[in-house]
Every structure is written in C-alpha cells, then in structure tokens.
Design a protein around this nucleic acid. Sequence first.
DNA 1: AAAAATAACACAACCGATTGTATAAAGAAA
DNA 2: TTTCTTTATACAATCGGTTGTGTTATTTTT
Lengths: 364, 364
Amino acid sequence: MFLKIVYRRNYYIYTTIITYSMEENKYVTIYDIAERLNLATSTISRALKDHHTISEKTIKKVKKTAEEMGFVPNTLAAGLRGNKTKTIGVLIPTVTQPFLSSLISGIEIAAQKSGYTVIIMQSHDSSEEEVNMAKSLYSNRVSGVICSLAMETRDTSHFLQFSNNNIPLVFVDRVPKDFNTFRVVIDNYSAGYKATKHLIDQGCTRIAHLTAGSEFGNLYNERKRGYTEALRDHNLPVDEELIVNLKSVTYEAGVKASNKLFDLNPIPDGIFAPGDIIAVSAVQTAKKRGLKVPEDVAVIGFNNDPISEIIDPNLSTITHPAEKMGKAAAEIIIKNLKSAKQDEVKEITFLNTEVLVRESSARK
Amino acid sequence: MFLKIVYRRNYYIYTTIITYSMEENKYVTIYDIAERLNLATSTISRALKDHHTISEKTIKKVKKTAEEMGFVPNTLAAGLRGNKTKTIGVLIPTVTQPFLSSLISGIEIAAQKSGYTVIIMQSHDSSEEEVNMAKSLYSNRVSGVICSLAMETRDTSHFLQFSNNNIPLVFVDRVPKDFNTFRVVIDNYSAGYKATKHLIDQGCTRIAHLTAGSEFGNLYNERKRGYTEALRDHNLPVDEELIVNLKSVTYEAGVKASNKLFDLNPIPDGIFAPGDIIAVSAVQTAKKRGLKVPEDVAVIGFNNDPISEIIDPNLSTITHPAEKMGKAAAEIIIKNLKSAKQDEVKEITFLNTEVLVRESSARK
DNA sequence: AAAAATAACACAACCGATTGTATAAAGAAA
DNA sequence: TTTCTTTATACAATCGGTTGTGTTATTTTT
C-alpha cells in the first residue's frame, strides 16, 4: 500500500502515512457468538439485552464474548424484524441557516440521549424535493419525522404516509395550518407585537416593517399581524408605504428594501425586520446613508442569530429558541414512540420568545 | 379527534385543524404486489428495477400496480440482504459552525444526486462521543463514512472498523496524520503563507498571529507554519510575543487575545487570525480602542464565513471551500462504492484557497 | 416421592427484498 | 416432429436479529 498525493491545484504538503494491517474482520453476528459458546442465537440475543429468562452467568459470559469478538449489532436486521429503527428523519429546507442548524443540534442532542439516530435531508425549499425525501424517509422506515416545510410547499399530502401509518410527525417553525399533527412553534403574532411595541416604547412613531413570503407561509404574516395590531393598539396609523414585501430573505433584498424606505420623506424612525440578516442590512444601509442607529432610526431584528451580537451597533432582536425547539420536537417523537399508541391529542407546543434589547434600538 | 393547544408560556394563537382520514394503510410489500398480479416476488423485484429477463409488458404492469398500491421499498430489507445501504455517515464536531454546515450541504447535495441518504452525527468535539457514534454508524451499516475529527481526538483506532471492512472512509479538514485513508483538505500551510504574505504586501512589518489548538490538530499549526515561513522569506522577525495561543476559538477569547496584542508597544500593524470570528473580534476590539482598520492595523481572517461580508469594515479572509470539500468527499465515497473494490491508493485531495481582499486589509 | 412450578435455554418462523438456479412455454433450427 | 434455444417467470435460500412456543433440567410444594 502506498500513497499518492493528488495536487488539485498548486499547493504542497508533506505527510507521513502509516498503513494499518488490513485483515478483514467480517461483520460478527450473534450466530458467531452462539457457535463459539455453544448456545442458541435466541439466547445470545436475549442475553445481550438482559432478558430476565437468561441467567446472570450466561449474560455475563455472552457479553464478554461479544465484546471480545467485536460484535456490533446489525441495526438493519433488528429494524426489519421489529419494523422500527430508532431513527428520526429530519426534513428541512437547508442546514446552513443558523436557525436550522441550531434546530438540528437540539434534535440531535435529544435523540442521542435516547439512543436515536438522526437522518437529515434538505429540501432546498423545493416541494418536489420535499416529496421525494419524504418518500425516502418512509422507505428508510424512520421511526418519526421532524419537518420544517419548504417555502414553496402548499400541498402537504406527502406527509400523510407518516400520520396514516402511526409514525409520529412533528412540524417545526414553518408548519402547515391544516394538518392534524404535532407542532412546535413560537407565537409569531405576539413576537411581532412585542417587537413593534418595543419600538413604540422607544418613542418611534413611524415604524416600517419588512416582511416576506406568501399567504401560505403564515409565519411572516403572523409577525406582520402582530406589527399592525401593536400599531393600532397604540393609535398609530398603519401606513402601507412603510410595509415592504421582500422577494427573498437575503442581505441584498434587504438593502434594496431599506433604500426604498430611506428614500421616503420623512424616513421611518423605526424598522422591524423579520430576520437578523435583513435587520443588519437595514442598519448598514442606514449607516451608509449617514443615518444614525438608533437615534435616527431604531432597528429590531428577529432570530438572535450569532451576527446580531457582533455587528456594530449590536442588534436588538427577538429570540428564536432554535435548539429548544429541536429538543422539544425530538422529545415529542420519542415520547410517542415509547407509548404503545400515539397521543390522540396532537399538541401544539409554543416556545417562548423574548425581546433582546441591544444598541440598535436602545434610545432611552 | 380534536385539538388541544398547550400554552407553554403566555402566548396565544388561533388555528384551524382539519383532520384527515386515518385509515391505516400498512406498509405495502412486493408480496402484496405479487399476490395481486399472480406473479412471483422475484419477478416483482426484478421488474421494478428493469431487469432484462423481465418482459416489457410485465415491467409496465408491475410498475403501474406498485404505484397504485402505494408501494415504497423497504430499505432495511434490501440493505440486510445486500449488506449495503446507500447511506453515507457523516461524523463531525457540530452542525452549527458555518464551515461545517456548508460541508454537510455539499455532502448532501452530492449524495442526493446519486441516491444516497446521509446520516449526520455530532461528536461535539468529544472523543468519547466520536467513538460511540462511529460504532453507531457501523451498526447502521453505512456504506461510507465522512469525518472531521473532534478537536479532542488523538487515538483514531475507532475508524479501523471501517477501513478494515472495506467501507470507504474520508476525512475532511481536520484529518489525522497517520491514518491511511482518503482525505479532503486545504493546504493550511500555504493558506497561512498567503494570508501573511498579503499583509506583508500591504506594508505590514509587525504582523501578529492568533492561533489555537494543540500539536495534534495540525490544522492551526500548519497555518502558523505558513505564517512564520512567510515572515522569514521576507526577512521579518518572528516575534513570539506577537503569537497568541487561544484557549478556544470563540469571540470572547478573540477579544481577550486582541486586547493583549493592542496592549503591546508598539502595537502590531497586521493581524492574521485563523478564523473569521476571531478576526472580527480583533477588528472590533481595535475599533473600540480607537484604532483604525486597516490603517492602524490590517486584519485578515479565515473561512469566508457569511459574517465577513457583513461587518464593517468588510473582512479580508481566506476562502475555505466547505461545500466543495463536502461534494468532493461524497464523490470519493460514491466512486469507491461503485467499483468492486476500493482504490488501492488513498488520494489526498487538496482544494484551492484564495485570498479574498476586502476592506479590513486593503491599505493600498 | 410424586406433582407442580420455575428456570434456562433451544427451535423455528418471521421481517421484505434480492438473486442463483430451476422450470415451463414459446419459438427456432434440424 | 424432435431437439435446441431463448424467453419469461417461479422457487427457495439468504441477510441477522427477534420472539412465541417448546423442551429439558432443576427446584419447590404437597
């Protein structure tokens, strides 16, 4: 065995390679252990999981031998027989958004604790991919599914294969309105309300709102509803020219929308953005135009992404407890898998959000 | 079936629930199709994969019926029989770092394209968890494994179970020195060299370097080696007081280290940080102390994290092609799974890095 | 000491797709 | 018509744990 270094471009490195012995140790099965110990495979199987019908002595002997022989159970065989796999399928738009990667992290930690494995699939916000991947998860006989819908998704019938087959299904964050299953969300309405109220409390009277998404993605609409309600409750007019609908939730779209707002006369004195990236774009656009944040315009974002703590001025934001939501979702799955049948009542779990006041909105 | 809303805290929402019919459609198997069509299961199995011994007519009929009956193949059964699963296991420290989530994204896209499923596990930089999870991947009979080592890991013998059993194993980014298997990396030495040279080219003569990690994690050491070599090549002294070793790669640790550097007299006129978060902390610490970036001190980071484009001033950085690396790793796995036996030669794939000059270091 | 109860383990079917081999039917060659 | 191919499909073993039931010992009860 030797080493070949491939230079894909023009860089060099020096490396030492030690070759380990390559004798193939085929997968060790319970049959191998049974043969070695002159016991039945059923005894081995039961001994390995401390079944009460097996004597202490045998259990100890079996476990020791299994260890020695390097036995690792074949999850597939167990899953096939028992028709369950201790695997949780996660179907989300992408793993690269901070919110979603934190969500995964929470799921993974909770799953790990109970001995579950996590399969992750990315829909890339495409319905078509979501349909395929749901099928793939089903094909893999996942024990439960956690999903945050693709932006594009309207029809959710591809999730019926889970709910119809008693496979626990939890929607997180971007959830369908009309599907009877578990949901873990934040209250986007009250979060929007709180964010707007905060700006009002800071003395803002001309508060703009950047929003996004369609009617179906009720997430942004709920935030917007909170925004308008807060304005009404405080006797402020809801000015349609202060509400800008983003084509996409990107930095560039945020810059464009912010510029539109700052072209108004008078400019808004407060901006509520439904995401930190957008809020950051607003802050920086303001700064570029010589506006002071928060003095001239106060800004509050959403999510509490890592960046919100880092930019200057620090960004006020609404917390979005991603990891907790992941943990909650995974725990719902696990709880429902433990009991013989699923909860009749499909709980909607609301997690708390908080206004995090930092420099970008602190006028007082 | 009804709906119960659980208020975890103090928020409210209004939701409509439509209950879908809940008749259970058990998993449909090829046996069910065989029975319906009065054919043998072997015929069904072959027909579904266009085997040449099955007639066109039968294939068409079988596929139609399978579709109608809602047949979804049981991956477990196929995996058990064939002893392969079309699943790639990914074992990384965490999914929440931008580099790693982009890496996953790349893996997932490439895997998806070839019909592979991805299982992700997080070691949280703990060796113990890494050992357990490697075992779990093995237990799940993954077809291949992609791993970026836990910071803590010294002994890599828990990966022998893969290489000894002909399961393609690719290490990415944080790779062991002495394990004979595929690796996908960047040339950290030359990246460090280039970053430092860039600062020199900008007129810096007193360049500090923040570094991290131990001897084993050769990643940071390589960057440091590039740094010192670049200095030497340009007849600049290597000043130990300008090299600060971080306890952890966090913003806070970066602030602390930066302050230490700015307490020196004279202060460094350039800083090379081995990560963008650290670089950002340096930039902001400098600004807080009234120093101008890049005039008083030029800063260059590493990774090209999203934040580097957003902070003010924009951060110069070294690109770290995460998604490409993931794609490359997955493709190596897939290629090796396609051929009967693995490549004898375990390639080391180097991906290119580039100096991305932005405001934080552009003095000229 | 005989009957009953319990402990300890073995036997074999099962999960569902795959695949080497066998068989039957249809067509081609002799 | 008979034999040889070719085509189309069936049969049955297999992968490796799991689990209901059966079978022997061994111990306890009466």
